[in-house]
Every structure is written in structure tokens, then in C-alpha cells.
């Protein structure tokens, strides 16, 4: 059952990225372009997502177990360290260069766009390098 949930959640997430246009790098770069021609739309993506996910998390976090799995997996990492800051700086730089973050990048593969494919391949290379370094 949890396999079906994974597939369905992926589909709903992907459709959310399409409807919100977060899948479009131009839209993301417009959101980050606050000093010139600013498109504030993507702030509403975050608000929309948090309105649903925040209460869901707090209502269910103290339940014994999720419906289709043996236990909840919640990050216990509270450390605010160099890795967190340096990683976020590198990510923010890459995000601002092209306008793609991991979710929209993978979702945009559906459009058979060569640029997306190059980006995603490089992103996976980045994942691999990080797994070897960490």
C-alpha cells in the first residue's frame, strides 16, 4: 500500500508544481528578481503548501504509527552548523543560476527538454559526490 501512496503523492506533488508554475525556471527566476521586475507568485506556493502540511504534521506526529508503515521517520537533526549554511549557500547559487530546484527539475523531465535532462544528470552527479564526501 505504501508503494501506491508514494506514486500518488508523487503525482499530486508534480501536478502542484505544474499548476503553480514552479516547474518553469523563468517563473522561479522572476520570484528571485526582487530588485527589478518581481513576480511574488511563488511565495503563495509556499503559503498554500504550509497551510496544509503544518496542521497535518502537528495533528499526526504523536500518533503511534502512520497508516501504512511501521513508524514515523522524523529528522532529529537540530544542528545549525557549517554544513547547513555552506550547503544552503551552494544550493541557493545553483537555484539562482538556472531557476530549478530538485522537485521541479525532475518533474520537468516529463517535457522531454534537453536542458532539464542536462541539469538533472548534473544534479545526480552532485548527489553522488556529496554521498562520497559526507
Amino acid at each position: 500500500m505504501n508503494k501506491i501512496v508514494s506514486l500518488l503523492c508523487g503525482i499530486v506533488f508534480g501536478i502542484g508544481l505544474v499548476i503553480s508554475e514552479m516547474i518553469n525556471p523563468e517563473k522561479v527566476l522572476g520570484f528571485l528578481n526582487i530588485f527589478k521586475d518581481w513576480d511574488p507568485s511563488l511565495a503563495f506556493v509556499m503559503i498554500g503548501a504550509l497551510i496544509v502540511s503544518t496542521p497535518a504534521f502537528h495533528l499526526f506526529k504523536n500518533k503511534k504509527k502512520p497508516l501504512f508503515s511501521s513508524n514515523f521517520l522524523i529528522s532529529s537533526n537540530k544542528e545549525i552548523d557549517k554544513k547547513l549554511i555552506i550547503g544552503s549557500v551552494l544550493f541557493g547559487g545553483g537555484w539562482g543560476l538556472i531557476g530549478l530546484c530538485p522537485g521541479p527539475a525532475i518533474t520537468s523531465l516529463a517535457l522531454l527538454n534537453m536542458s532539464s535532462a542536462f541539469f538533472v544528470t548534473s544534479m545526480f552527479a552532485g548527489f553522488y559526490i556529496a554521498s562520497k564526501v559526507n
Binding site: 500500500m1 501512496v5 503523492c9 506533488f13 499548476i19 496544509v52
Partner: peptide, 22 residues
């Protein structure tokens, strides 16, 4: 459309947590 897309993303996050625990 941004808000609507965001709600769907939030729904996906909520369901994945409630059902699969992650």
C-alpha cells in the same frame, strides 16, 4: 494558481506523512 498548486504540494506532503510516515 500559485496558491492552488501550493495546496496540492501541501496535500502531497501531508498524505505522505500521515500514510507512509515520512
Amino acid at each position: 494558481s500559485a496558491l492552488l498548486g501550493g495546496l496540492l504540494i501541501g496535500l502531497s506532503v501531508a498524505l505522505f506523512f500521515i500514510l507512509n510516515g515520512r
